[in-house]
């Protein structure tokens, strides 16, 4: 068994359909990447320009961050794909557990200092 594993394979074992799927996946990844670059640029512009007031910029770039997070997790980290139920549920429960903790600590320590 162990010996076979070290031999390189001669030709790909993927079917044509699987190859098409991989190609489509690559295209989706590239588009997602381009969108994320665009979002980052938007955030930089929003933060750097003098025309926009801070009261608009902060919620705006936070919104962009949420969109980025979604794209990262679902498109780059494949959470949208089939058979990702467990990673999905762990990621969601992690967010559900940490979000109230962080909010509570921000309210308690950030505002009243204890």
């Amino acid at each position: 068994m162990a010996e076979d594993m070290e031999q390189p394979f001669e030709k790909s074992s993927m079917s044509n359909e699987e190859k098409r799927k991989i190609n489509r996946e690559q295209r989706v990844q590239m588009i997602a990447f381009a969108v994320m670059i665009g979002l980052t640029l938007l955030a930089f512009i929003a933060a750097g320009s003098d025309m926009l007031p801070g009261t608009f910029t902060i919620p705006f770039i936070l919104l962009l961050a949420v969109v980025q997070l979604f794209l990262q997790l679902y498109y780059f980290m494949h959470l949208k794909d089939k058979d990702h139920g467990w990673p999905n549920s762990f990621m969601i429960s992690g967010l559900v557990l940490t979000a109230p903790t962080i909010v509570a600590l921000m309210l308690l320590i950030g505002i009243v200092k204890f």
Binding site: V96, L97, P100, T101, A104, L108, V112, F114
Partner: peptide, 18 residues
């Protein structure tokens, strides 16, 4: 398991959090 993460401040009631 879920609620276990939502209750930690009950160890700190006398700290004066409000």
């Amino acid at each position: 398991g879920f609620l276990g993460f939502m209750v930690w401040v009950h160890h700190m009631f006398t700290v004066g959090i409000g």
